[in-house]
């Protein structure tokens, strides 16, 4: 696995595998035993993974990666093409401008920043949908940001150990 470190395309493959894993998590249907309302708590896994990669490898993962992942999400979820792309581009921009500071933060401090980033993500998505006349504002549109911020420490630690294990820089 250490050999991957020298191989630039190998690293790119790992990055995209994790982003795709996030897309799979975003699509997995809820088991029928749990109440359907729990679906409102599903965090935006792809946005979280993108923010992690930007903090960890800002020279390899950037706005273009976020845009491509956003277009893929738009197709997968059947939303307007460009909706997720726009919100991912915006949070990627903020994360890229803050990554040096974010690296200094403790995991829980990062969580609060994540809450703001994921909140922007949700708001932009809602804004596009409401301009297109597809949605009314509901308070639970911000719940995914809350759950995402809460789950961030685990995502961060897991992805960091994965990155160190594959030796990506």
């Amino acid at each position: 696995m250490i050999a991957v470190a020298d191989n630039k395309t190998g690293g790119l493959v790992t990055i995209w595998i994790i982003i795709i894993a996030g897309m799979v998590l975003a699509l997995v249907p809820m088991p029928q035993l749990v109440p359907i309302e729990l679906g409102f708590l599903r965090p935006d896994w792809v946005a979280m993974v993108l923010v992690y990669w930007i903090i960890a490898l800002p020279h390899r993962v950037g706005i273009l990666t976020a845009w491509l992942a956003g277009i893929a999400m738009d197709v997968l979820l059947g939303s307007l093409i460009g909706q997720h792309a726009l919100s991912y581009v915006l949070i990627a921009y903020v994360a890229l401008s803050l990554y040096q500071r974010l690296r200094m933060f403790s995991v829980w401090q990062q969580s609060t920043v994540l809450f703001v980033l994921l909140g922007i993500n949700q708001l932009v998505g809602f804004w596009i949908e409401s301009v297109a006349g597809l949605a009314d504002w509901r308070f639970w549109y911000l719940l995914p940001a809350l759950s995402g911020a809460f789950l961030w420490p685990w995502v961060f630690l897991m992805l960091r150990s994965l990155r160190r294990w594959t030796g990506m820089t």
């Binding site: 950037g62 706005i63 273009l64 845009w67 956003g70 307007l80 093409i81 460009g82 909706q83 792309a85 726009l86 581009v89 915006l90 990627a92 921009y93 890229l96 401008s97 596009i128 297109a132």
Partner: peptide
């Protein structure tokens, strides 16, 4: 550089969204 990239792709997304909607 970063800002231009963000603006470019952001505007492109908005245009795509508009085209897809209409």
């Amino acid at each position: 550089m970063l800002g231009y990239q963000m603006l470019g792709l952001g505007v492109l997304s908005l245009v795509l969204g508009f085209v897809d909607h209409t």
